[in-house]
Amino acid sequence: MGPLIFRFVVGGIIVSAFSILGDVLKPRSFAGLFSAAPSVGLATLGLTIVTEGKLYAAREGRSMIAGAVAFFLYACLCIHLLVRNRWGAMAASVFSFSAWFVGAFGLWFLVLK
């Protein structure tokens, strides 16, 4: 339980820090770059290296490339729903998770499995 709580606290701090950086930066599109910052990666990989070793973390890094492609699909669907379909921000950003899961697990099935 201890390592899990440690992960939770470290993750919360790093993700919040990047998020605050995004809040204070202007213009909006530039600040948006920080929405795709490697905050979870930074929080997780450091701990993974300590517990599982560098090779294990490197394998996670390889899969993270597919995750980043899926994040791109996620953001594109979100923009489409907000601009073309005029969905609300919450509905668009939550529904777009479907694009992330399809992209990430599609690439996992086709390339990484």
């Binding site: 948006g32 770059l33 390889r62 953001a75």
Partner: peptide, 21 residues
């Protein structure tokens, strides 16, 4: 606009992952 920035940021995220890998 925020989502547009995030879409651009994912390229950086991908390169971050390549460096780690």
């Amino acid at each position: 606009l925020d989502a547009r920035g995030a879409a651009m940021g994912t390229f950086g995220l991908g390169f971050f992952a390549i460096v780690i890998w």
